[in-house]
Nucleic acid binder design. Structure first.
Lengths: 212, 212, 212, 212
DNA sequence: GATGAATGAGCGTTCATTCAT
DNA sequence: AATGAATGAACGCTCATTCAT
């Protein structure tokens, strides 16, 4: 956690440090991001940095948790419009869309989040990672249970497995987007995403139920 | 490419260097793997290492290409039993199984291969990566085309997208396996993999065709 | 160029680094001068060195340019007393004297300058070298032209050749001095230098002109 | 000194080692010439090298002495045609010519010889260097004495100084040649050299003597 | 609290030389 | 005598972190 000193900073200064850290972690990953570059770009003294954060790790955890929180809020907001929605597949489509929109609007934050998966041997991050993943799959699980109750999807599935599949399907769409950022996104990513949703959706559908 | 000196080495020594490099690259990734540790574990002089390889990069490329080749051979061999198979879904299932088996039997090699995706800003590796991915999706594309001809799957799909989806679906099974190596694998990974194959398969199926 | 950090240093420290670098480059030449020895003798941390200079090359270029500038200033100052002098030979004698005095008073700086001629295959230094040499011969050329106008010296000479000859004649006096530093200099070097000036001077003289 | 083993080698092999060493020492200088490159180019085993020579130093000394001897013989032969010559200036001109011709015909050998002057802190080489220089100046001294006796040149000179001057004048012509090897040599170097000889010669001439 | 200079363990790499066969 | 693999001290350089002001 950053120190009180950091939080007492003028917002402008504080945000500069945060923004620069995000963009560097996004661009280079954890290991290749250098404190020296952060402080130079943020125009603060090196000593100051260590009065704000315990160490590099501390900064990264802070940025990471911030990214998770920002994303969580974004998704929640986007899903508001789906309140009352009864159809699982429309729900899932909405979730995918929300995730994609978040990434499109917060490219660097999305990159930082995806980079967590690339950090090895950091026990500490494993916990964050696990929590973050749990948060992503828990929502899906809840919906899957309802969908099964409603006979929307087959009942012979392992909910944990499927939630993970749906979750990772989305992650891959995001990866695809982040690695090909030059693509004229909205136009190209949507059909790609929709197709995946459709295919997996079809596969999950309870064929005995008449589509409403 | 390693030097002639390296290839002239006694197999035992040569393999020791290779195995240790694989396990370190697998465990720590490229950047965090240190030559110092490799030579210490392999019980060779630092100078010797540099008589075997141009530099760290050279070693990594060698290991990477080796992993790709070993995997390629493994998959080819496993797919032999599917020769003459006409059903796309059984084919794909076989491919998934082959990939999983490779990973189970070559945990570290599989990890090295997955790690390539985590290296940032290495133009050289991008080429290897792209080739490797192409090799994985090309096979699927070929089959998809046949499957469409045979009316097995819907014809309104973008073959490139779907091949990529099927490919990445498999990658995710592998990632799941590699990150949870402690799981009693064969028993747990199989149903997981099968379910994915089944769901996506169902989604792709041409419902107008009567299943044979 | 050294960093701002270096220039912000206390003069004593800064000069210590400079002096030690000069004496090592003078004594051992570029390749054999080790950063490790510089930092040990200057009593600074290795890391500090790299906060002052980009690399070894950067340090050397700095020292070299410094030497060139110091010499330039020295020569200018010494030549002040010759302002208004009309006789070419007295001019040249003065220039030789100035160069010798500079070397005597700045032995190591002079050695560093002579060492540049001994560096092989360093494109970068070739430019510095050429500039430095040009600076040395240009002055002579200017005077030669005037001397010819004044009928002081024969007009059938190639000014470029002769300027180079006079320049190198001086370089050799300096080399002689630097390689035999133990000689009780002022007493021995002067007659040596004067003789050279006299001989070459005689050879250049326009014998048709009556000496004033 | 090379070992007996080296001298027992077939001439072809022996000469290959020598030639390659010469060309590398000439091109890169002592420090930057690597044993590894020599043995690779000469196609001998590294172990063999150390059975021929004590160490790198030993090889260099051998090459150096060889160069000195070859040059000595060359000069002697060239000066044969000047036997009986009574005029000092024609003698000196001939010596200069001989030196230039040697360099033109043995570029690499000449380079090695000039490189000796660029080696620092090798007590051993200082001796070789001094001997080599002595050999060059002794001949000139001998002639100077005769020339003075014959009233060809002024008697008020320090023979040691002047011999050194004449010697170094020649060295500079050679340096000029070696550093500008691309110049269409014979045509350009001759007038350059002749001019120097003429000028210094004129300066040395005893003007009271009637020219024959 | 801010500053920026100081630190040093550790990295990848080089190369003359030795050693075992 | 020939081979070529083995050695390791030493190099230039990096960078997260600490310290003195």
């Amino acid at each position: 956690m950053p120190t009180k000193t950091f939080f007492n900073l003028a917002d402008e200064k504080k945000n500069k440090v945060i923004e620069i850290s995000i963009s560097l972690f996004a661009e280079r990953g954890y290991t290749k991001t250098q404190i020296t570059e952060i402080v130079k770009k943020a125009d603060i003294a090196k000593g100051s940095f260590y009065q704000y954060f315990d160490d590099k790790n501390d900064l990264f955890k802070y940025i990471l948790n911030k990214a998770i929180k920002v994303k969580e809020d974004y998704i929640k907001k986007e899903l508001k419009s789906l309140e009352g929605e009864q159809n699982f597949f429309r729900y899932w489509k909405g979730l995918n869309k929300a995730n994609i929109n978040f990434a499109l609007e917060n490219l660097n934050l999305a990159r930082v989040l995806r980079n967590v998966y690339k950090i090895k041997n950091f026990e500490l991050f494993k916990i964050i990672k696990r929590d973050y993943e749990k948060q992503g799959t828990d929502l899906i699980k809840k919906w899957l249970i309802i969908a099964i109750k409603n006979d929307e999807i087959k009942s012979d599935i392992n909910i944990g497995y499927i939630a993970h599949l749906l979750y990772t399907a989305n992650c891959f769409i995001i990866d695809y987007l982040l690695e090909n950022e030059e693509i004229d996104t909205q136009n190209k990513i949507d059909p790609y995403a929709n197709k995946i949703v459709e295919i997996i959706g079809n596969g999950l559908k309870n064929s005995r139920k008449k589509e409403g």
